[in-house]
Amino acid sequence: MTQLKWLVHPVMIFIFSIITVAMSLILYIYWYVEISAGLKAVIQKANLDPDQVLAPQTWVVILILSILVGIILMGMFIIFVYNQKTLQLYRLQRNFINNFTHELKTPVTSLKLYLETFQKHQLSREDQLKYLNYMIHDADRLSENITRILNLARIESKTFKEEFVTRDLVSFLEQFSERNKHIFHGCEIHVHNPTGRAFEYGIDLSLFEMLLMNLLTNATKYNSSKTPRVDITFTPTDKELHIRFEDNGIGLPRTELKKIFRKFYQIGQPDNMSAKGSGLGLYLVDTIARIHKGTITAESKEGEKGSVFSLILPSKLLAANP
Protein backbone atom coordinates (compact mmCIF):
# COMPACT_ATOMS: atom_id res chain seq x y z
CA MET A 1 0.00 0.00 0.00
CA THR A 2 2.86 2.35 0.87
CA GLN A 3 4.60 1.59 -2.45
CA LEU A 4 1.38 2.37 -4.32
CA LYS A 5 1.12 5.76 -2.58
CA TRP A 6 4.68 6.57 -3.63
CA LEU A 7 3.86 5.75 -7.25
CA VAL A 8 1.04 8.34 -7.34
CA HIS A 9 2.97 10.91 -5.31
CA PRO A 10 3.36 14.20 -7.25
CA VAL A 11 7.15 14.06 -6.90
CA MET A 12 7.24 10.63 -8.53
CA ILE A 13 4.83 11.78 -11.23
CA PHE A 14 7.10 14.73 -11.93
CA ILE A 15 10.13 12.40 -12.19
CA PHE A 16 8.21 10.09 -14.54
CA SER A 17 7.25 13.11 -16.65
CA ILE A 18 10.89 14.18 -16.97
CA ILE A 19 11.92 10.63 -17.88
CA THR A 20 9.15 10.55 -20.47
CA VAL A 21 10.37 13.81 -22.00
CA ALA A 22 13.90 12.44 -22.17
CA MET A 23 12.69 9.16 -23.71
CA SER A 24 10.69 11.00 -26.35
CA LEU A 25 13.69 13.10 -27.34
CA ILE A 26 15.99 10.08 -27.42
CA LEU A 27 13.46 8.12 -29.49
CA TYR A 28 13.05 10.98 -31.91
CA ILE A 29 16.78 11.44 -32.39
CA TYR A 30 17.43 7.71 -32.58
CA TRP A 31 14.73 7.13 -35.14
CA TYR A 32 15.50 9.94 -37.55
CA VAL A 33 19.26 9.74 -37.30
CA GLU A 34 19.96 6.00 -37.09
CA ILE A 35 16.96 4.03 -38.25
CA SER A 36 15.90 6.33 -41.05
CA ALA A 37 19.42 6.49 -42.44
CA GLY A 38 19.74 2.71 -42.35
CA LEU A 39 16.37 2.18 -44.01
CA LYS A 40 17.18 4.61 -46.77
CA ALA A 41 20.40 2.74 -47.53
CA VAL A 42 18.54 -0.58 -47.69
CA ILE A 43 15.80 0.93 -49.85
CA GLN A 44 18.32 2.31 -52.32
CA LYS A 45 20.08 -1.04 -52.63
CA ALA A 46 16.80 -2.87 -53.13
CA ASN A 47 15.45 -0.28 -55.58
CA LEU A 48 12.22 0.13 -53.53
CA ASP A 49 9.84 3.06 -53.32
CA PRO A 50 10.84 5.06 -50.15
CA ASP A 51 7.26 6.33 -49.63
CA GLN A 52 5.81 2.83 -49.32
CA VAL A 53 8.37 1.77 -46.68
CA LEU A 54 8.97 4.88 -44.59
CA ALA A 55 5.40 6.15 -44.41
CA PRO A 56 4.06 3.37 -42.07
CA GLN A 57 7.12 3.67 -39.85
CA THR A 58 6.63 7.43 -39.63
CA TRP A 59 3.04 6.95 -38.42
CA VAL A 60 4.24 4.56 -35.73
CA VAL A 61 6.69 7.19 -34.47
CA ILE A 62 4.02 9.87 -34.54
CA LEU A 63 1.66 7.63 -32.52
CA ILE A 64 4.32 6.80 -29.92
CA LEU A 65 5.36 10.43 -29.62
CA SER A 66 1.71 11.49 -29.22
CA ILE A 67 1.26 8.99 -26.38
CA LEU A 68 4.42 10.21 -24.68
CA VAL A 69 3.38 13.86 -25.04
CA GLY A 70 -0.05 12.95 -23.60
CA ILE A 71 1.63 11.35 -20.57
CA ILE A 72 3.78 14.47 -20.14
CA LEU A 73 0.77 16.78 -20.28
CA MET A 74 -1.19 14.60 -17.83
CA GLY A 75 1.75 14.58 -15.42
CA MET A 76 2.11 18.34 -15.63
CA PHE A 77 -1.64 18.78 -15.06
CA ILE A 78 -1.57 16.57 -11.95
CA ILE A 79 1.41 18.51 -10.61
CA PHE A 80 -0.43 21.80 -11.25
CA VAL A 81 -3.57 20.59 -9.43
CA TYR A 82 -1.49 19.30 -6.52
CA ASN A 83 0.36 22.60 -6.33
CA GLN A 84 -2.91 24.55 -6.24
CA LYS A 85 -4.29 22.35 -3.46
CA THR A 86 -1.05 22.69 -1.53
CA LEU A 87 -1.21 26.49 -1.81
CA GLN A 88 -4.86 26.47 -0.72
CA LEU A 89 -4.02 24.30 2.31
CA TYR A 90 -1.11 26.59 3.15
CA ARG A 91 -3.39 29.64 3.06
CA LEU A 92 -5.96 27.88 5.26
CA GLN A 93 -3.28 26.86 7.73
CA ARG A 94 -1.84 30.37 7.80
CA ASN A 95 -5.30 31.86 8.38
CA PHE A 96 -5.96 29.22 11.04
CA ILE A 97 -2.72 30.06 12.86
CA ASN A 98 -3.48 33.80 12.74
CA ASN A 99 -7.04 33.39 13.99
CA PHE A 100 -6.26 30.66 16.48
CA THR A 101 -3.45 32.77 17.95
CA HIS A 102 -6.01 35.54 18.34
CA GLU A 103 -8.46 33.07 19.94
CA LEU A 104 -5.80 32.04 22.46
CA LYS A 105 -4.39 35.48 23.14
CA THR A 106 -7.72 37.20 23.77
CA PRO A 107 -8.81 35.15 26.84
CA VAL A 108 -5.25 35.15 28.21
CA THR A 109 -5.09 38.94 27.96
CA SER A 110 -8.51 39.23 29.54
CA LEU A 111 -7.55 36.92 32.43
CA LYS A 112 -4.40 38.93 33.05
CA LEU A 113 -6.39 42.17 33.15
CA TYR A 114 -8.87 40.80 35.69
CA LEU A 115 -6.09 39.37 37.87
CA GLU A 116 -4.29 42.73 37.85
CA THR A 117 -7.56 44.38 38.86
CA PHE A 118 -7.84 42.02 41.84
CA GLN A 119 -4.23 42.76 42.73
CA LYS A 120 -4.44 46.56 42.61
CA HIS A 121 -7.95 47.28 43.91
CA GLN A 122 -10.15 46.40 46.84
CA LEU A 123 -13.34 45.12 45.24
CA SER A 124 -16.73 44.51 46.72
CA ARG A 125 -18.03 40.97 46.86
CA GLU A 126 -20.47 41.72 44.04
CA ASP A 127 -17.67 42.98 41.76
CA GLN A 128 -15.49 40.03 42.68
CA LEU A 129 -18.19 37.58 41.64
CA LYS A 130 -18.78 39.51 38.42
CA TYR A 131 -15.09 39.44 37.46
CA LEU A 132 -14.76 35.81 38.52
CA ASN A 133 -17.59 34.88 36.16
CA TYR A 134 -15.78 36.73 33.35
CA MET A 135 -12.59 34.84 34.17
CA ILE A 136 -14.39 31.49 34.18
CA HIS A 137 -15.85 32.33 30.77
CA ASP A 138 -12.38 33.18 29.42
CA ALA A 139 -10.92 29.99 30.93
CA ASP A 140 -13.69 27.93 29.29
CA ARG A 141 -12.97 29.59 25.96
CA LEU A 142 -9.26 28.86 26.29
CA SER A 143 -9.92 25.27 27.36
CA GLU A 144 -12.29 24.71 24.44
CA ASN A 145 -9.70 25.81 21.87
CA ILE A 146 -6.94 23.70 23.41
CA THR A 147 -9.25 20.69 23.62
CA ARG A 148 -10.04 20.90 19.92
CA ILE A 149 -6.36 20.89 19.01
CA LEU A 150 -5.74 17.89 21.28
CA ASN A 151 -8.77 16.07 19.86
CA LEU A 152 -7.57 16.67 16.30
CA ALA A 153 -4.11 15.33 17.15
CA ARG A 154 -5.68 12.31 18.84
CA ILE A 155 -7.96 11.41 15.92
CA GLU A 156 -5.28 11.89 13.26
CA SER A 157 -2.70 9.95 15.25
CA LYS A 158 -1.66 6.69 13.57
CA THR A 159 -1.70 5.00 16.97
CA PHE A 160 -5.32 5.98 17.67
CA LYS A 161 -7.69 3.03 17.95
CA GLU A 162 -11.45 3.28 18.25
CA GLU A 163 -13.29 1.30 20.93
CA PHE A 164 -16.86 0.68 19.85
CA VAL A 165 -19.66 -0.31 22.19
CA THR A 166 -23.34 -0.77 21.36
CA ARG A 167 -25.66 1.89 22.78
CA ASP A 168 -29.24 3.02 22.23
CA LEU A 169 -28.67 6.36 20.50
CA VAL A 170 -31.93 7.90 21.73
CA SER A 171 -31.13 7.24 25.38
CA PHE A 172 -27.52 8.22 24.85
CA LEU A 173 -28.44 11.65 23.41
CA GLU A 174 -31.01 12.26 26.17
CA GLN A 175 -28.50 11.43 28.88
CA PHE A 176 -25.75 13.48 27.20
CA SER A 177 -27.90 16.62 26.88
CA GLU A 178 -29.11 16.29 30.46
CA ARG A 179 -25.63 15.69 31.84
CA ASN A 180 -24.11 18.66 30.00
CA LYS A 181 -26.97 21.16 30.05
CA HIS A 182 -24.90 23.54 32.19
CA ILE A 183 -22.42 23.86 29.30
CA PHE A 184 -24.99 25.00 26.74
CA HIS A 185 -25.93 28.23 28.55
CA GLY A 186 -29.67 27.75 28.92
CA CYS A 187 -30.21 26.18 25.52
CA GLU A 188 -33.39 24.11 25.27
CA ILE A 189 -32.51 20.69 23.87
CA HIS A 190 -35.36 18.35 22.92
CA VAL A 191 -34.96 14.80 21.64
CA HIS A 192 -37.79 13.52 19.41
CA ASN A 193 -38.30 9.87 18.52
CA PRO A 194 -41.67 9.61 16.72
CA THR A 195 -41.37 5.86 16.13
CA GLY A 196 -40.70 5.10 19.79
CA ARG A 197 -38.07 2.55 18.76
CA ALA A 198 -34.66 2.03 20.31
CA PHE A 199 -31.82 2.46 17.84
CA GLU A 200 -28.78 0.51 18.94
CA TYR A 201 -25.52 1.32 17.15
CA GLY A 202 -21.84 0.70 17.73
CA ILE A 203 -20.16 3.96 18.79
CA ASP A 204 -16.91 5.10 20.31
CA LEU A 205 -18.23 6.85 23.42
CA SER A 206 -15.60 9.60 23.66
CA LEU A 207 -15.66 10.35 19.92
CA PHE A 208 -19.45 10.39 19.70
CA GLU A 209 -19.66 12.71 22.70
CA MET A 210 -17.11 14.94 20.94
CA LEU A 211 -19.37 15.04 17.86
CA LEU A 212 -22.42 15.94 19.94
CA MET A 213 -20.50 18.53 21.93
CA ASN A 214 -19.35 20.34 18.79
CA LEU A 215 -22.79 20.37 17.16
CA LEU A 216 -24.63 21.55 20.29
CA THR A 217 -21.95 24.07 21.23
CA ASN A 218 -22.15 25.63 17.75
CA ALA A 219 -25.96 25.75 17.97
CA THR A 220 -25.62 27.73 21.20
CA LYS A 221 -22.59 29.83 20.30
CA TYR A 222 -23.90 31.08 16.95
CA ASN A 223 -27.35 31.97 18.16
CA SER A 224 -28.88 35.40 18.66
CA SER A 225 -32.29 34.13 19.82
CA LYS A 226 -33.52 34.99 23.27
CA THR A 227 -33.77 31.28 24.06
CA PRO A 228 -31.51 29.02 22.01
CA ARG A 229 -33.21 25.79 21.03
CA VAL A 230 -32.11 22.53 19.40
CA ASP A 231 -34.52 19.82 18.27
CA ILE A 232 -32.93 16.42 17.73
CA THR A 233 -35.15 14.13 15.66
CA PHE A 234 -34.66 10.45 14.81
CA THR A 235 -36.00 9.53 11.36
CA PRO A 236 -35.38 5.97 10.12
CA THR A 237 -35.60 4.99 6.43
CA ASP A 238 -35.13 1.65 4.68
CA LYS A 239 -31.37 2.06 4.34
CA GLU A 240 -30.42 4.85 6.75
CA LEU A 241 -31.07 6.47 10.09
CA HIS A 242 -31.21 10.28 9.97
CA ILE A 243 -30.50 12.17 13.20
CA ARG A 244 -31.42 15.81 12.60
CA PHE A 245 -30.03 18.61 14.76
CA GLU A 246 -32.24 21.64 14.03
CA ASP A 247 -31.45 24.93 15.78
CA ASN A 248 -32.85 28.46 15.77
CA GLY A 249 -29.45 30.14 15.39
CA ILE A 250 -28.16 32.68 12.89
CA GLY A 251 -28.02 30.17 10.04
CA LEU A 252 -25.40 29.67 7.35
CA PRO A 253 -24.91 31.20 3.90
CA ARG A 254 -25.84 28.71 1.20
CA THR A 255 -22.47 29.17 -0.48
CA GLU A 256 -20.69 27.97 2.68
CA LEU A 257 -22.62 24.74 3.29
CA LYS A 258 -20.17 22.46 1.47
CA LYS A 259 -17.08 24.25 2.74
CA ILE A 260 -17.70 24.28 6.49
CA PHE A 261 -16.50 20.68 6.97
CA ARG A 262 -13.06 21.41 5.53
CA LYS A 263 -10.06 21.40 7.80
CA PHE A 264 -9.17 24.91 9.07
CA TYR A 265 -12.10 26.48 7.16
CA GLN A 266 -13.70 29.50 8.82
CA ILE A 267 -16.67 31.58 7.74
CA GLY A 268 -15.73 35.24 7.43
CA GLN A 269 -12.71 37.21 6.30
CA PRO A 270 -9.46 36.10 7.95
CA ASP A 271 -7.76 39.38 7.08
CA ASN A 272 -10.06 41.49 9.24
CA MET A 273 -10.55 38.82 11.95
CA SER A 274 -14.26 38.45 11.16
CA ALA A 275 -13.76 34.69 10.82
CA LYS A 276 -15.22 32.90 13.82
CA GLY A 277 -14.02 29.81 15.64
CA SER A 278 -10.99 27.61 15.18
CA GLY A 279 -11.99 26.01 11.88
CA LEU A 280 -11.72 22.55 13.46
CA GLY A 281 -15.07 21.83 15.11
CA LEU A 282 -17.08 20.77 12.07
CA TYR A 283 -14.04 19.08 10.54
CA LEU A 284 -13.92 16.91 13.66
CA VAL A 285 -17.65 16.25 13.37
CA ASP A 286 -17.26 15.11 9.75
CA THR A 287 -14.23 12.94 10.62
CA ILE A 288 -16.02 11.28 13.55
CA ALA A 289 -19.11 10.65 11.40
CA ARG A 290 -16.92 8.86 8.83
CA ILE A 291 -15.24 6.81 11.56
CA HIS A 292 -18.75 5.60 12.45
CA LYS A 293 -19.43 4.74 8.76
CA GLY A 294 -21.79 7.69 8.46
CA THR A 295 -21.94 11.14 6.89
CA ILE A 296 -22.89 14.62 8.06
CA THR A 297 -24.77 17.19 5.99
CA ALA A 298 -25.81 20.81 6.57
CA GLU A 299 -28.90 22.73 5.48
CA SER A 300 -29.82 26.36 5.92
CA LYS A 301 -32.46 28.38 4.12
CA GLU A 302 -31.42 31.76 2.77
CA GLY A 303 -32.91 34.62 4.76
CA GLU A 304 -34.27 32.37 7.50
CA LYS A 305 -33.00 31.61 10.97
CA GLY A 306 -31.59 28.28 11.94
CA SER A 307 -29.58 25.45 10.47
CA VAL A 308 -30.08 21.71 10.24
CA PHE A 309 -27.20 19.26 10.59
CA SER A 310 -28.08 15.67 9.72
CA LEU A 311 -26.04 12.71 10.89
CA ILE A 312 -26.77 9.82 8.52
CA LEU A 313 -25.92 6.30 9.66
CA PRO A 314 -26.34 3.09 7.63
CA SER A 315 -29.21 0.84 8.72
CA LYS A 316 -27.19 -2.30 7.96
CA LEU A 317 -25.00 -1.50 11.00
CA LEU A 318 -28.03 -0.61 13.11
CA ALA A 319 -29.83 -3.04 15.41
CA ALA A 320 -33.26 -1.43 15.74
CA ASN A 321 -35.87 -2.85 18.05
CA PRO A 322 -39.45 -2.66 16.81
Rank of each mutant, 00 (worst) to 15 (best):
E144T: 05
L104A: 02
I296F: 03
T147P: 00
N95I: 00
R148A: 04
F80T: 08
F172W: 09
D231W: 02
L54I: 15
L313V: 04
V69T: 15
T237V: 05
I232Y: 01
W59D: 10
D51R: 09
T86E: 08
Y201S: 03
N272T: 14
A275Q: 06
P50M: 05
E240W: 09
K85S: 14
F208I: 08
L169P: 02
L152Y: 12
K221W: 07
Q122G: 06
K305N: 14
F176D: 10
M12Q: 09
E156L: 06
S177I: 14
L65P: 02
I64P: 01
R94Y: 09
N133D: 12
D138A: 07
V60W: 06
L241P: 03
G306W: 01
I189M: 09
L87N: 00
S24T: 00
L211I: 03
R91K: 14
L113R: 15
G281Q: 05
W6G: 02
M273T: 06
V21R: 05
T287G: 00
S171Q: 13
G281E: 04
I146F: 10
Y90P: 00
L318Y: 01
Y134E: 11
E299K: 01
K239D: 13
T106S: 12
F164E: 08
G279N: 05
M210H: 06
E304V: 06
L313I: 08
W59P: 00
A198M: 06
L25R: 00
Q52G: 00
Y90I: 07
L241T: 01
L25S: 10
P322I: 12
M12N: 12
A320K: 12
S157R: 01
S110M: 08
D238P: 08
M74Y: 15
F172G: 03
H242G: 05
G249F: 03
A153C: 02
I155W: 03
I203V: 14
N223E: 05
K301L: 11
N133R: 14
I243P: 07
F100A: 04
V21G: 08
I189W: 07
I19A: 14
P270M: 11
K105R: 07
T159V: 08
V53Q: 09
R244W: 02
L280Y: 03
L48S: 11
E188D: 15
I35W: 09
M23T: 09
T101N: 13
I18E: 03
I203S: 04
P228S: 13
R179F: 00
S17V: 07
L92F: 10
I296H: 03
L311Y: 02
T86W: 08
H190T: 13
K293F: 12
